[in-house]
Amino acid sequence: MAFYNKIIKKSIWVFHVSASPCNNCDIEILDLITPGYDIERFGIKLVGSVRHADVLLVTGIVSHKIAPRIKQLYEQAPKPVFVVGIGTCTVGGATFKQSYNKAGASLDKIIPVNAFIPGCPPKPEAMIDGIVKLLGTLK
């Protein structure tokens, strides 16, 4: 298993789940694949189908409408899969803290979360740092 973990660290395919954000975090995630940051250097690739995903990047407060779908997406992903909450929204709600439409206080009340990367929105450097730290915990 240790050897497999060593390899999976070098080949991370991320799937981007947009769970009612203000769309700012999504734009910052797309920044990651532009030439300026180029996360393909680390073997990180953005995939379109959740069946190919290793990491789910979730952005936004999870509203009542999207909560069942997030659970469904998590179940559809082939294991082992990691979940990373991007932005302060997933931690505490940021701008939408007092919204009537929040399904849970934070994302980890809905699906298991491996790491949070707070910031409103977090810088691409912070996201790379967060993902690298998450992979560092793999033994």
Binding site: Y4, E40, P78
Partner: peptide, 23 residues
Amino acid sequence: FRVGPPFFQNFYDIFKLWGKEVI
């Protein structure tokens, strides 16, 4: 104008896929 993946990237990808769950 990007740097691109390391040399063994495709080997890592295939090896990783072998160990994932088949749904």
